[in-house]
Amino acid sequence: MKSVSLTVAALAASVAFAGVAAARDQVQIAGSSTVLPYAKIVAETFGETFGDFKTPVVESGGSGAGLKEFCKGVGEDTIDIANSSRPIKDSELEACKAAGVTDVQEVKIGYDGIVFATDSGLPDIAFVPADIYKALAAEVVVDGKLVANPYKKWSEVNPALPDVDIAAYIPGEKHGTREVFEEKVLAEGCKETGAADVIKAAVSDKDEQHAKCVAVRKDGAAVDIDGDYSETLARIAANKTGVGVFGLSFYENNADKLKVATVSGVTPSVETISSGEYPVSRPLFFYVKKAHIGVVPGLKEYVEFFVSDQMIGPDSPLAEYGLVSAPDAEREEIRSAVEGGKTM
């Protein structure tokens, strides 16, 4: 009998625990795994600098999942900030507004460069978007006609490229990076090679034209990586002739194992990306729930701290990790938008 009453007591205690759920005293953030390392650095430094506030909690899980959580509603059990490696979609914003999240502040934190890298043992590679399109697209133009991609080796695509089998490890379709890869590389290459015109002649619907342009071959030469960049790195280590798609910061942290390819003759670096010379880059964002500012302690301070030059300026720890700072004028603009409380 004793054990039964003990059990009941334990159950009661655990229910009582739930009852005393105190007001949240910590900023909660979720979203993009690309923004995660930057948000972690800011959160940690924030916790160290502001003794009165706890270190914010940063969840990972992806831009889409983060924005979905963010748009669930207003209140203590919803997150305050969603990190995103792409701008919020109209449909997501509508979902937000329908759930009562009417005031959303968009904050751009800087740019992320996307680089193509190979094992350090391979010769230097210089890509143009057309090469990558021809090597990886599902259908390419041969003699004015669309045919299934016939290329097996990089040298068949462009004689200047090494004579090795095409094996590319590209971000999976749920990755934020995938969109940049499609827009800035495949769509660009589609236009350069003239495939876009052939497709335009064949298909009238605009969306379908675009979809055909960015469709990736499925015969094993292009491998979708749904995990993180560390998985791509492991694939490259296993297949020394493979080409991987990485974030600039990840590449810089593993520069002793990887060799970076130039795109359109430009070597990716913080300088070439911030000047816009290097073509494959994307802005990174976070979205703030304005209704929570002033309610969740530290939220306003965290956002202001994030956009300060101390964090996203050219000499900041984020820049050191690989974030490409926005130009001075743009950073000034971001700060004034944050202070003014501009919503979408």
Partner: peptide
């Protein structure tokens, strides 16, 4: 939400 960056040691089972 437990796959997260948490720096503060949780004092109770209700802290992140």
């Amino acid at each position: 939400g437990m796959v997260a960056f948490v720096a503060n040691v949780p004092a109770t089972p209700l802290d992140p």
